[in-house]
């Protein structure tokens, strides 16, 4: 499940040079606000999947999908309902010493997020968090990033359609 203000769009695209640029450029020129975008190969040779998350624009999402579908190298673009996909996001996070450990582990247990401390830099723990996109979003919302986090990167969402 994603949080309420987002929508997931999955694109099956021909794995050809420039296809990412076409997709990104279309979103830019039509002012579709992308929250995250990931791209990678799939089980089918020559076909990649792009998973895009848009800030929810109710009225426009259909238009976004229609416009993406009109790109020649896009085989299919569709808005997916959270219940029809498994979606995951990876977060790498360096937290300040002794600040977040309790919160993170508690939240991760409740929300079924895989968590590991994979390293330590100057005594600050490096977390690897892997979980469903909405759960990750919620967990991060509960953190005072300015105060407790040294560095944070997110992979963006990937979604597997069931």
């Amino acid at each position: 499940m994603t949080t309420r203000n987002q929508q997931i769009v999955i694109l099956q695209v021909q794995d050809q040079p420039g296809v990412l640029s076409r997709v990104a450029s279309l979103c830019r020129r039509r002012r579709f606000n992308i929250k995250s975008l990931t791209v990678g190969t799939t089980h089918k040779t020559g076909i990649s999947q792009i998973t895009m998350v848009f800030w929810k624009e109710e009225a426009r999402i259909k238009n976004i999908v229609n416009q993406l579908n009109s790109l020649i190298e896009v085989l299919e673009a569709e808005v997916v309902h959270p219940k029809d996909v498994i979606d995951k996001e990876l977060v790498l996070l360096i937290a300040k010493k002794d600040q977040l450990e309790e919160y993170i582990f508690k939240k991760c247990t409740v929300n079924d997020i895989n968590v590991r401390i994979i390293n330590e830099i100057d005594g600050n723990p490096v977390y690897e968090l892997l979980g469903q996109g909405g759960a990750i979003e919620k967990l991060l919302q509960g953190i005072d990033i300015q105060k407790n986090v040294i560095k944070l990167v997110r992979s963006g969402l990937i979604a597997l359609k069931l």
């Binding site: 259909k62 238009n63 229609n66 416009q67 579908n69 009109s70």
Partner: peptide, 8 residues
């Protein structure tokens, strides 16, 4: 003919 025009 262009579905992207319908409802745009």
């Amino acid at each position: 003919i262009d579905p992207a025009e319908i409802g745009k």
